[in-house]
Design a protein around this nucleic acid. Sequence first.
DNA 1: GATGAATGAGATTTCATTCAT
DNA 2: GATGAATGAAATCTCATTCAT
Lengths: 193, 193, 193, 193
Amino acid sequence: MTDRREQIIIEAIKVFAAKGYYNSHIADIVDKVRIAKGTFYLYFSSKKDLFLELIRLYQQIFHCEFNLEKYYKKSSDLKGFMEEMLAERFKLHAENRALSVIILREAVAIDQDFTAEYKKMDQHRFDNLKLLYDFLVEKKYINSKNDFEYFACIFVGTLDSIIFRKLVMVEEEFNYLKAVDKVSDYLARTLAN
Amino acid sequence: MTDRREQIIIEAIKVFAAKGYYNSHIADIVDKVRIAKGTFYLYFSSKKDLFLELIRLYQQIFHCEFNLEKYYKKSSDLKGFMEEMLAERFKLHAENRALSVIILREAVAIDQDFTAEYKKMDQHRFDNLKLLYDFLVEKKYINSKNDFEYFACIFVGTLDSIIFRKLVMVEEEFNYLKAVDKVSDYLARTLAN
Amino acid sequence: MTDRREQIIIEAIKVFAAKGYYNSHIADIVDKVRIAKGTFYLYFSSKKDLFLELIRLYQQIFHCEFNLEKYYKKSSDLKGFMEEMLAERFKLHAENRALSVIILREAVAIDQDFTAEYKKMDQHRFDNLKLLYDFLVEKKYINSKNDFEYFACIFVGTLDSIIFRKLVMVEEEFNYLKAVDKVSDYLARTLAN
Amino acid sequence: MTDRREQIIIEAIKVFAAKGYYNSHIADIVDKVRIAKGTFYLYFSSKKDLFLELIRLYQQIFHCEFNLEKYYKKSSDLKGFMEEMLAERFKLHAENRALSVIILREAVAIDQDFTAEYKKMDQHRFDNLKLLYDFLVEKKYINSKNDFEYFACIFVGTLDSIIFRKLVMVEEEFNYLKAVDKVSDYLARTLAN
DNA sequence: GATGAATGAGATTTCATTCAT
DNA sequence: GATGAATGAAATCTCATTCAT
């Protein structure tokens, strides 16, 4: 059996995704885990603490370092590189839909502490993107005249927009194969000069 | 003197932007407007009603029809067109920073009714983008082989990402002139082929 | 045109009957009379004052002195006497249904001041009943060995019970002719020995 | 110690009887029970819910099936039967004075939901009275030519009138022995032919 | 006399958190 | 470690009444 703490996180993700942070109550979560209210507080110091944990979990899953060499080996051009990368990322979002919904929808809002954690995560994300950017420049996939900041905004903006629309705004399953093709095409064209 | 309802909206935008929806209380708003609690309820039926009003206000300001012919006349190519358009939009966001912050940060979250209103607004936005898309195709600024949905996602994704980062994530003033130049350049290159 | 004060009373009776005292608001009443809120307070000092007025109005209509001689002339025995009397009373209730509903349903409840007013009215009612009792004894319609208090309780209890059930508990119109026959029969038999 | 829910009911009856439903506040009740406000809501979902509970409690106590055989065995005629029955009922009211006051005074008023519950109770009461009526006919204590509806109205009207006057209208203790004698006498005479 | 925008005391209800068992 | 009854601060909202116009 998975441990208590993990069980709580699993159910909390479902509850938060379904009802939003403020409309989700500790009572909802402990009911689903089948533990008493007091038990929750043995593992988390507060509802806020739990949510911050989810932001950190999201960061671990989605903003760990890119496997740049792997994508490079499997591809022969920028579009191919993008395809590898996006396929991996979109798959991850599809597999962690509820968590993605929570973070994309609410992490930056609600509470100053969440905003702060979100900013930390965003900074981390940009650090990773810088590695990507430098890698692509080094491999001559993109031109170094591209301003990094705007490269990054286009990249995350387009991705987040797609993901947000496919996961948060609609109910149906996210068929990411078509998205991989389209988005990699656009991004390659945009960045490749 | 502006009318009561408008006064309440003005202060509510400030309060919500500073503290978030759930951490803002009717008491905070009425204190700032210097009216009694009951007076608030003469103009809005609930806190939720007020927030929905702000979503609608945002839509009115930001998702009214594009002035396509004006941008076209003032420009000679796609980049020029984009510059005109983005300058107007970024200016609007800079001038309505607090409202932008609220909507970009929280409108989709919090409550099912807000999500529903947000979706209506998003649909409206895409309808306007379709007009833009058709206009650009007609004027031969972009190739009709571009898939509209992905055109739209790139467009709104990039814009929202810039705006979100410049308004929500940092405190400093939004110097939109540089952003206009960079983003129009990227979008023109991306969409121009 | 009837005067303002009377108009307010007329509409207030309808509103109180439909929604009960506490769920009826001054706003409901003034809306129906088509006057402003402030105007209400030119004619009544408070919502309570208005309700007390209705209790007094009820008393005027229903607990004025019995027309004993008239009933006596028109009848030849106790049952006939009762018939005359009940017909008049039931007719009055049918004609003032909403007011009856309010008083029978709520006058004794809600507020200490109402209870006090109700008790005054009840005392007045019993004073009248004493006149009736003495009259019936004098005319040898009833035996003076009847204890007045219990005579009164049976009389008002039976009447109020019928009226309550016919006016408050059911929606349909009060066909009082049958009630007159049945109740006069019972009362005559009960009291006649 | 009695359980919490019961404690709340006991104190609520006192508070409602003393001040009326609308002038009684949750704060008054929880203060008397010496619990926190939140605790109240662990046992009742709302103030209304509590009051409905009291109506149901009254029904359980006062409108459970009559012990007809017992009264019959103990008595030799209709008056004797009535005495047994009334003694038991009046005693019950004397012992549950506050609850009786609340229900007789307010249950039918105040709120549509209370009225609905009251009507259900009244129906139940009449069902029981029908059993009484049939029993009395069967035992030849009363003549079957008596119309049941009016039999019932006389019966409940007289009883309620006495009880209302002895419990609600006056402060002094209800000496029900005299009432038993007088009322049984009247009822027996009324119904016995 | 008439108006109706404004008032504000005060009610019900919520729910994260605690702590004795 | 686990429990869950109890807490109570704090929020939203109501509505009779006032008073400047």
